[in-house]
């Protein structure tokens, strides 16, 4: 069976660290960074990129359109 793999790109400066994507991620890929962005928010980042399935739940729920999602079959 083909496995679906995904990958996300987070625009750091646009992220406000609301954590809504982290809660919505079904595989626990996303975590909040310890570092802050230029506006002082802890931004979201793919802490476990191997777990990502490219479902785009994070991007769909993200208020600020921070996340771009890529998806492919392996």
């Amino acid at each position: 069976m083909a496995k679906i793999k995904g990958s996300i790109v987070v625009n750091i400066d646009r992220c406000k660290g609301c954590e809504v994507c982290m809660v919505s991620c079904p595989t626990g890929t996303i975590a909040m960074a310890k570092e802050v962005n230029s506006r002082g928010y802890n931004y979201a980042y793919p802490a476990f990129p191997d777990l990502c399935i490219g479902c785009a739940s994070c991007a769909i729920v993200c208020p600020d359109g921070v996340i771009t999602v890529y998806k492919t079959k392996i």
């Binding site: 793999k5 995904g6 990958s7 996300i8 790109v9 987070v10 625009n11 750091i12 400066d13 890929t29 960074a33 962005n37 230029s38 931004y43 980042y45 793919p46 990129p49 191997d50 990502c52 490219g54 785009a56 991007a59 769909i60 359109g65 921070v66 996340i67 771009t68 999602v69 890529y70 998806k71 492919t72």
Partner: peptide, 22 residues
């Protein structure tokens, strides 16, 4: 634009699943 990415090999235009509207 500062970015943080997941697996780099998957990030290709043909694999795009979601992006912010232009």
């Amino acid at each position: 634009m500062k970015e943080v990415t997941g697996i780099k090999e998957i990030i290709k235009p043909e694999n795009l699943a979601y992006r912010k509207s232009n």
